[in-house]
Design a protein around this nucleic acid. Structure first.
Lengths: 131, 131
DNA sequence: TTAATTAGTATACAATTGTATATTAATTTT
DNA sequence: AAAATTAATATACAATTGTATACTAATTAA
């Protein structure tokens, strides 16, 4: 009840609206953040596991993106005192709740791709985007 | 019914899942696309109107981003044979339906910002992101 | 006739993002 | 003792994205 009112109130105030949406956008923008988040949805992973699973990512990029995601509270980094040291990465609660955003993006993407391909059939125009 | 099954099916297939989500991400990534889409939610706008409304955008960037959004089917460009020529930009149906994605991003952003600030109060750690 | 408005384009540059390749240092397996 | 595994970091570069500033060509208002 209280939450819904707050949500509606902020929607009408474009400055806060834009800020909150941009925060969400920054969490996932770039080439590697979504693959990393996606991979961690299936459970904890170590650095080398992520490096192997995410095709063509370099350790430099993986390291950088993991730091970004940790700073933004999306993942948690745990050092295990094994020999050699292993480091575990896992989604936080905020990271898991990100699923709702991905779901709506998936739904929109599917609908949009579909209508794009339908247009292609009738228009015989060229494919200029990655849709 | 049929749609829901299709949605669930694709969620379990990570390749299509990632593709559709990336399509959605590409529609809004960068500094200017969200401000442009946001501005057009309130109705049709001409080039110069957008330039005035969107603080600090250059005509070069506005022109480029409008082209991208048009190619991706988010906006429609209409040339009016006035003197001098005016050009109208408006959201397509796909553009309007993007609201659902923005809503879920807004909701997540608000929740996430809130928990971030609550952590700040108890942790007295420094602010390292734009949250 | 000069200035302003329309919708952009041209050129050069700066900043950010991503790639390629090699290296580190501790430990374990062969 | 040599090779492999751990989780990264270092350096140099390429590509993409964004900024700054000036310009165009048609028309209209002052």
């Amino acid at each position: 009840m209280e939450n819904k009112n707050e949500f509606e109130e902020v929607k009408s105030c474009s400055k806060q609206y834009i800020l909150a949406i941009n925060d969400t956008l920054n969490v996932m923008s770039g080439k590697w953040k979504l693959p990393i988040i996606g991979s961690l949805f299936y459970g904890k992973k170590r650095f080398k596991e992520l490096e192997r699973e995410i095709s063509k990512i370099t350790p430099r990029m993986l390291s950088k993106e993991l730091k970004d995601l940790e700073m933004n509270g999306i993942i948690r980094r745990t050092v295990l005192e094994t020999a050699p040291i292993t480091v575990e990465y896992e989604l936080t609660e905020a990271g898991h709740s990100f699923q709702s955003v991905l779901d709506s993006m998936l739904e929109w993407g599917l609908k949009h791709r579909k209508s794009y391909f339908e247009n292609l059939k009738t228009n015989t125009s060229e494919m200029t985007t990655n849709f």
